Amino acid sequence: MIAITAVLKSKSENAIQVLEMLKLLVTETRKESACKRYDLHYTENDFIIWEEWENQEGLDLHNTMPYLQHFIQESTDLLSREITIFKTVDVF
């Protein structure tokens, strides 16, 4: 199992737009067979996505999906900083 935590911060004036874009991303990603968890949490203009993937192949495939690529391209100007991604494995 591969765990990913993605942290995003929108510009305050773009928070609703980013939220709506992320909802679409979550909906589409949850349809992927290797996706075991893809949860969105937020407060104001901070967003966290908690992901769990069955294997690296599934994660690699996810990273090529058009809806993810579209989100990355369209959100660049809406975010106040680059997306931070942590890739981790279970310890305990």
Rank of each mutant, 00 (worst) to 15 (best):
V26L: 07
S12P: 15
E13S: 11
T29Y: 07
L25N: 01
I16F: 11
K23M: 05
T29L: 12
S12G: 12
R37F: 09
K23R: 13
L24K: 13
V26G: 03
Q17F: 02
C35Y: 04
S10G: 06
K9I: 12
A15D: 04
A15Y: 04
D39A: 06
L19S: 12
Q17R: 07
K31R: 15
K23C: 04
E20P: 01
S33C: 11
E32C: 05
Y38W: 01
V26Y: 08
E20M: 04
A34Q: 07
L40I: 01
A34G: 05
I16Y: 11
K11A: 12
M21P: 00
S10E: 04
A34F: 03
K36S: 12
Y38E: 00
T29F: 08
S12H: 12
D39T: 09
K31I: 10
K23T: 06
I16Q: 08
T27C: 11
R37P: 02
C35L: 05
N14G: 06
Y38Q: 00
L40M: 02
L40C: 00
T27A: 15
V18F: 01
M21C: 01
C35A: 10
E20N: 06
L24F: 08
A15N: 06
Q17A: 07
K31H: 11
S10D: 01
L25F: 04
R30V: 06
N14Y: 05
C35I: 05
Q17V: 11
E20A: 04
K23E: 12
E28S: 09
M21V: 02
Y38F: 03
K31T: 14
R30L: 10
V18T: 00
K36F: 10
A34D: 03
E20D: 04
T29N: 05
N14S: 13
K11P: 10
K31C: 13
M21A: 09
V26Q: 10
A34S: 13
K11G: 11
K11W: 11
K23F: 05
V26M: 03
S10I: 00
E28N: 13
E28D: 06
A34P: 07
S33N: 13
E20G: 02
A34Y: 05
Y38R: 01
S12F: 14
M21D: 04
E28V: 09
L25P: 02
S33A: 14
D39N: 09
E32K: 08
T29M: 09
K11I: 12
S33E: 15
A34M: 07
K31S: 13
K36E: 14
L22S: 05
E28A: 07
